[in-house]
């Protein structure tokens, strides 16, 4: 098997050029491993070789990124690297940003694998965790041994294309992508352990950190609803009987656009729900219960609304990924805007 060719990126401090007073040094190339590269090389053993090391001062990189980055990429490319390892940067902020920037550029522009390591609070972690695998390290170089232990196996998997496990298994910082794993203890046991730790005031790690929830503020009221064109949109899965678009009963991958022209009432046997998340009996008997076409028609006739828009959009909201829902809406909202729809009644279940 061919050895993996690694280029290692480090700063002036880890290259033992100097501390803050030498942070202005521009990029330079050294053959073989330097400083922490020696421990890395040992961890890889015979499977990989650090062919060279790029060194750059942290101030220089951050103040002259547009010059430093292409120069560094050229060095990595010239060395014929399969893999770029940057840092680890621990809690050094500018170094972290440099490691993240170089690693992401190596992936995006050179098309090679890249990995780095940082303390979770390093500003570079927030900036790059979604783009680059960042090994979670301690907050100082005292954590070098631990970091190298996790870095080398994950780097090998990246290069070989083996499946990457969950962040807690591999030791990288969560990337905002949820990955399944089998734990040693069943969920109930883990919950009890977490409760005991919480009661005692000990550290514990939640398995699902709450996201910044996307709450949408309602629009101001429509000024003159009696003249507005109103559309009906639903995540309640109302579809023509037989579900012609084959919308899934859960985690829908599509939505339907259905013509309501001349339809005064959604009747049994002609309309039904495709939704798998609630008792369908009542919606199947009278789909207006979820998508109130009958009432909208009455209001149209009474002049309470201007008109009901000709088409309705329907999907199944049951376990459907928010990302999919957003994509559906991005698409059909264009037609609603184009057709001068002024208000949408969005029914859920």
């Amino acid at each position: 098997m061919q050895k993996i060719r690694i280029v290692h990126y480090i700063n002036q401090f880890f290259a033992q050029i100097g501390g803050e007073e030498m942070a202005h040094v521009p990029p330079q190339w050294r053959e073989g491993p330097v400083g922490p590269g020696l421990a890395l090389a040992a961890a890889f053993g015979q499977t990989a070789e650090i062919v060279g090391t790029v060194i750059c001062g942290d101030s220089y990189f951050n103040e002259h990124t547009s010059e430093a980055l292409p120069e560094i990429l050229d060095m990595i490319k010239a060395a014929g690297a399969d893999l770029l390892i940057a840092g680890p940067a621990f809690n050094a902020g500018r170094y972290g940003v440099a490691c993240g920037t170089v690693a992401k550029a190596a992936q995006d522009e050179l098309g090679i694998k890249a990995i780095t390591g940082m303390y979770v609070e390093n500003p570079g972690a927030d900036m790059f965790a979604q783009d680059v695998y960042i090994i979670s390290t301690r907050n100082s170089a005292a954590g070098m041994r631990d970091a190298v232990k996790k870095l080398a196996p994950l780097a090998q998997k990246l290069v070989s294309g083996e499946p990457i496990g969950a962040s807690s298994e591999e030791g990288y910082l969560p990337r905002g992508i949820r990955v399944n794993l089998f734990e040693k203890d069943r969920g109930a046991k883990r919950a009890v352990e977490m409760l005991v730790r919480k009661l005692r005031g000990q550290d514990f790690t939640t398995e699902y950190p709450m996201p910044d929830f996307d709450r949408v503020a309602p629009q101001p009221a429509v000024k003159n609803i009696s003249r507005a064109k109103v559309a009906l949109v639903t995540s309640g899965g109302i579809v023509p009987f037989g579900n012609p678009d084959r919308i899934e009963s859960s985690n829908a991958s599509r939505y339907g656009r259905y013509d309501l022209e001349n339809i005064m009432d959604l009747t049994e046997g002609k309309w039904a729900t495709a939704h798998g998340g609630y008792d369908p009996s009542y919606a199947n008997r009278d789909a207006d219960r979820v998508l109130p076409v009958d009432v909208m028609r009455e209001m149209e006739i009474e002049g309470k609304i201007g008109s009901l828009f000709r088409y309705t959009y329907s999907t199944v909201g049951n376990g459907t990924a928010v990302k999919s829902s957003k994509a559906f809406a991005d698409e059909f909202v264009k037609e609603l805007i184009k057709e001068n729809v002024q208000a949408v009644i969005l029914t859920s279940t």
Partner: peptide
């Protein structure tokens, strides 16, 4: 969280939910 794991996992969230299995 979607088939690719990149969507929001729950339909609701609250800051008090700081210990989740």
């Amino acid at each position: 969280a979607g088939r690719d794991g990149s969507s929001q996992s729950l339909a609701d969230a609250h800051v008090s939910a700081d210990a989740v299995v």
